[in-house]
């Protein structure tokens, strides 16, 4: 990988570090971001280890426990800390299992979209010509659809379900990293080290993947984190509208929807899963903000 410390203009830094590595160190020195990074990782751990840490089976219904209040309220039971829903299922266990849906969909959509978007953006920005025209027009057209309505229309066709949601969201999501990468590639492709690689006879794919890509990782990372937060809210919104993953699978959005009819008395049904969404999305947004600050040269001393 080429070192690029020269193109930001501050040649005084260690030559062995890439810009990306230096940015990551700056990020690591921001305590608030690191704190929220750990919360985010906590959610990831929760999703992976759900069967080990959930106190109950999330689908285990028992009408004797119907609408059981949280443990600290009158009539609560400490073996069901956050209470039970209308079917007597443990809310805490359902929240723990629900993190799987949010994190799986958030991560998969962003992974698929970023891969496609980065490749398309590199091709459009470096090859230019008709490749750029085709990709940019497609981007313009897809940007013409409001996000949620596009996803809803696709789900209306394909039906709800985990796989269809990932597809419905990824169909449009790749456009966002693509635009960023295209712009960055346009700005980078005239730079000395790219010219040098070209002069040395490197192939076009080599230049795109080995010279340009490593140097535009920072904006890609910022965009994918902030978009992941957004995708998680979109998935929860779809599930809330009944177009997301289907019962009995637990998802935070559908838990909020199920609790809606009980909000007058049994407020805990909707409140806790909503808090989980807020905390996860907030954490990712803070991490993303930290990355942005670390990567933005204006914040460098």
């Amino acid at each position: 990988m080429t070192t690029v410390t020269h193109w930001t203009g501050d040649a005084g830094t260690a030559k062995s570090e890439t810009l990306f590595q230096r940015n990551m160190k700056l990020f690591a020195s921001n305590r608030l971001s690191i704190f929220f990074l750990f919360i985010t990782l906590g959610f990831v751990f929760m999703a992976v280890a759900a069967p080990l840490i959930a106190p109950h089976d999330p689908s285990d219904a028992d009408l004797f426990r119907r609408l059981l209040p949280p443990a600290w309220m009158e009539g609560g039971d400490w073996s069901f800390p956050l209470g039970c829903d209308a079917l007597g299922r443990d809310i805490l266990s359902r929240i723990i299992y629900g993190s799987r849906v949010s994190i799986f969909i958030g991560a998969t959509v962003i992974l698929v979209a970023t891969t496609i978007g980065v490749l398309a953006g590199l091709a459009a920005g470096y090859l230019r010509g008709w490749v750029d025209i085709v990709i940019s027009r497609l981007v313009d057209i897809l940007l013409g659809f409001p996000y949620l309505i596009f996803a809803i229309a696709l789900i209306a066709m394909t039906g709800p379900g985990l796989q269809n949601i990932v597809l419905a969201l990824a169909y449009k999501e790749w456009v966002i990293p693509c635009r960023v990468v295209r712009g960055e590639t346009l700005a980078t492709s005239g730079v000395e080290y790219v010219e040098a690689a070209r002069a040395m006879g490197a192939s076009r794919s080599d230049i795109m993947l080995r010279e340009i890509l490593p140097n535009i990782l920072s904006p890609v990372l910022v965009v994918s984190t902030v978009r992941m937060a957004h995708v998680i809210i979109l998935e929860a919104s779809l599930s809330f509208l009944g177009l997301g993953v289907q019962p009995p699978m637990a998802s935070w959005g559908s838990m909020v929807a199920d609790g809606r009819s009980f909000m007058l008395q049994e407020w805990w049904l909707s409140t806790f899963p909503g808090l989980a969404i807020l905390l996860l999305v907030l954490s990712i947004n803070v991490v993303s903000q930290g990355l942005r600050d670390a990567f933005d040269p204006r914040f460098h001393d």
Binding site: A229, S237, G253, V256, P273, G274, I277, L278, V281
Partner: peptide, 13 residues
């Protein structure tokens, strides 16, 4: 920061 992180359907409820 909270404003962009709140799920609208939940906040409305």
């Amino acid at each position: 920061l909270f404003g962009v992180s709140l799920p609208g359907f939940w906040f409305g409820i």
